[in-house]
Structure formats: structure tokens, C-alpha cells
Amino acid sequence: METNWHAALGDPRLAPRWRAGLLALLALARGFQGRLGEGRAAMTEALAEGVRLDNATTVGYALNAGALIRSREGDQPGALVLADRALAEIGDDRELVDLRLMLLGHRAVALDSLGRPREAEETLAHARTLAGRTGATLLSMNLVRIAERYYEHGRWDDAQAVLDEVTDLPQDRWQLARHGLRALISARRDGRQEAAGHPETPDTEVVAPTWPAAASYRIVARSLALERAGQPREALQVLAVLLAPAYEYDIRRHPEWLAGLVRLALAVDDRRTARTAALESRRNAHIEPLPATRAAAQWCRGLVHNDPARLLAVIDHHRSADRPPDLGNALEDLAVLRAASGDRDAARAAFGEALAVYAELGAVWDARRAAARMRLWECAPGSGGRVPGRPPAGAR
């Protein structure tokens, strides 16, 4: 494959326009492969050629690759700048609808990461309208993106309804994303069959990172299903796959998963894995110093060091970011740490609020797990409501 790239780029018969376009494609491929330095070099050359040739299409594709690379490097402000520049360059050219949709996707991810959720939602709504005019495939891909965002912001019924609209997905990774997201919602709502995933596919198989985080959803869902079945060590083994380099980008997009990994590792007394996950979270916050990654790093450190004070800032972040699923989990962890420190009243207050969040989401499994963790400290439910039956011991 490498030989083919070099041969094509070095072919003297290749017109400058097509060589520049091929460089932009190479930059995008390198970005998806995680070879960011090589991708950046190819993008820079493609962009320079596009500008020299005054070719908006080449410039747009080069900037699209650049936005992807910036995002994977943790530079979301830079990704947003490049995506917006590319959108301005290509305008409303009907021949470039695919490219425009990709750029709108980069824009939405960057805006959400930067704490601008309303603009992110408006961007995805615009993409949905545009995709609806072009056919089922592009519309379905955009719907998966929208469902992912709905999941993150606690709109699980909306996410499932949007996934029901999907009719035609072009690639295995998009199908995996759709099924994985469904499985994750089902797992947290205490569904059985769907949450278990597809057993014929190895659960610990490392799949190259994609957007949406296709394989990661299924890994988290499978881990939840194993924990619920009373197999916390097996659940940890599955979830720890997310520490593999292939999932680095996925974990930066979902830094809360590392807090879940720390919690589960501590539940089975695997402090080495807990510390590794906490260090990874801290590294991610250094690479991409955004509110979500910084909050996750604090969350992990609070769990490792039994420090409830660290979780207060985490809870404030998830309140302001309107992320109820993560808010409920952080409140649950705070309740446990407060109980462990002997502050029963504060523990019950945090626990009651966590249960209220879970009730709003329909997160039955989360509520059952939280109740089991609190029973270890002989703290009764603080919400006044009935908590479903006792789950296996352990953490998410």
C-alpha cells in the first residue's frame, strides 16, 4: 500500500490538481490511522498546492484532513478554525455535499468539546437537513452522530428514536456504532439481550479508532453486562481494553470512561489498573486541557485517593455542561466516598440526588449498582423511592 501511494504521487503524468487531491486523501488516511505527523505533512503540502492552484475543492479536502488531525491531537480550537475555513472555501457547491457534512461533523465535535452545546446542536441540525436532501446513506450517518450526542446529554429516548430512523449505513464501523450505542443505553437501563452485544465478535478485540467511537460503546456495554451478571473481574478485563493506544482518541472524547475504569478496578482491589487509568486521564487532560478532560482527571484522582472534595468540582462541571449520565455517576461516587469518610448525612444527600438523576434517565442498572455500593456502608436510599433489587457488588 505504501509503495502504491509513493508511486502514484511520484508519477510525472499526474496533473498537479490530482496530485494535490491525492495528498489531501493521504493526509486524511494518516489521520484515521493515528499517524498524525505524516498526516500533517501531507495536509500542509496539499493545502499549499490547493492555494497555488486556486482550487477550492483541494483546499477544502486538505483543511478537512487538518481538522481531523487537530482534533486527534487534542487541539479542538484549531480543529474548529480549520473546519470553519474549509466551509467558507467550498461554499454551497452541490458537488461537495459529502465534504460539507464531514466538516459539519468536525465542527459539532469541536463545539461540544469547547462547552458550546447549543452551537453544536445547531450545527448537527443543519447537517441533518442537508443530509436529508442527499439520500438515506448520508442521512443515516448523520443520525448516528446526533444519537451519540443525545446519549451524552441524557436524551436517551431521543437517541433511540433517532437510531430507529437509520435505514442505510455504508460501512461496518457505522453499523457497529449504531448497535454499540443501542447496547450501551440498554445496559444502563438494565436491558438484557441487547446489552450483551454480539458474542460472536471477540469483546477484547482492538478496533482502530473511528468517529463515532464505534467499538468503544460496545466494550463499555459488554463490561456493564458482565458486572451485572456478577463477574466484576471479567468486566474489568473487558473495559481495560480501552487503555490500548488504539482507543486514545475515543477516551479523550469520553474521558468519563476512565473514571468508570478506576471505580471498577478499585472494586476488585486492582490498584495497579486504577492508577494506570488515573495517570492516563491526567495525561489526556495535559494533551487536551478542556473542561471535560480536566474534570475526568480530578474524578479519577478523587477515587484513587479517597478524596470527596475533588469530586465537587467534577459535579459542578457536569451540571453546567448538561451531562446527566456523568452527573449521576459522579454523585454516586461522591456518596460512596462521603459514606466511607463517616459523613452519613452528606452521603445520603448525594445518593438521593444520584437516584433522582438515574430515575429521570431510566438508568435502572446505575441505580441498582449505587444502592448496592451504599449498602456496604449501611446507608439507606435517600430519595424515598424504591430502588430495584440488589445487583452484584462492584462499580461501573
Rank of each mutant, 00 (worst) to 15 (best):
G135A: 08
G115L: 03
G135T: 11
L111E: 14
T134E: 14
S113R: 15
G115A: 01
V109G: 04
A120D: 07
G115D: 02
M141L: 06
R116E: 12
T134K: 13
L111A: 03
H126Q: 14
L139D: 04
T137V: 15
N142Y: 00
L143A: 00
A127E: 04
L104S: 13
L114C: 12
L111N: 00
T134N: 12
R133Y: 04
V109Y: 11
G132D: 08
G132A: 02
R145K: 00
M141H: 02
R128Q: 14
T129Y: 07
H106M: 10
R107W: 06
A125I: 03
P117D: 09
G135R: 05
L139Y: 03
A120K: 06
H106D: 10
S140H: 02
L143I: 03
L143K: 01
A108I: 04
A108P: 08
V144E: 09
L130N: 11
N142K: 02
L104W: 12
R107C: 07
L138Y: 08
T134I: 10
A120I: 04
A125W: 05
L124Y: 11
L114V: 12
G135H: 10
E121L: 11
R128T: 15
H126D: 10
R107D: 08
L104T: 01
S140N: 06
V144P: 09
N142D: 06
L130T: 03
L114Q: 15
V109K: 06
A120H: 06
L138G: 14
L124I: 14
H126Y: 05
V109R: 14
V109H: 11
R107F: 06
R133H: 11
D112G: 05
G105S: 08
A136M: 09
L124A: 07
R128F: 01
G135Q: 09
H126M: 05
G115Q: 01
E121N: 10
L114M: 15
S113A: 15
R133G: 11
L138M: 15
G132N: 02
D112N: 12
R116G: 03
H126V: 01
L114K: 13
D112E: 13
A136G: 03
P117G: 04
T137R: 07
L138K: 15
G115F: 03
M141I: 09
H106R: 15
P117A: 04
T137A: 11
A131K: 13
T137L: 07
E119S: 02
T123C: 12
G132K: 09
L111H: 02
L124T: 05
R107V: 04
A120Y: 03
E122L: 13
D112P: 04
H126F: 08
N142H: 02
A131C: 10
N142F: 01
E122G: 05
A110G: 11
E119R: 02
V144Y: 06
L114S: 13
V144M: 09
G105K: 01
A127S: 11
L138R: 15
T137N: 00
R145D: 00
V109M: 10
R107G: 08
E119Y: 01
R116D: 12
T123P: 09
A120N: 04
H106S: 12
M141V: 11
L111T: 00
R107H: 05
R133S: 11
E122T: 08
A110R: 05
S113E: 14
S113L: 13
R116H: 10
T134C: 09
S113C: 10
A108C: 08
E122A: 14
T137S: 08
H106P: 03
M141Y: 02
S113Q: 15
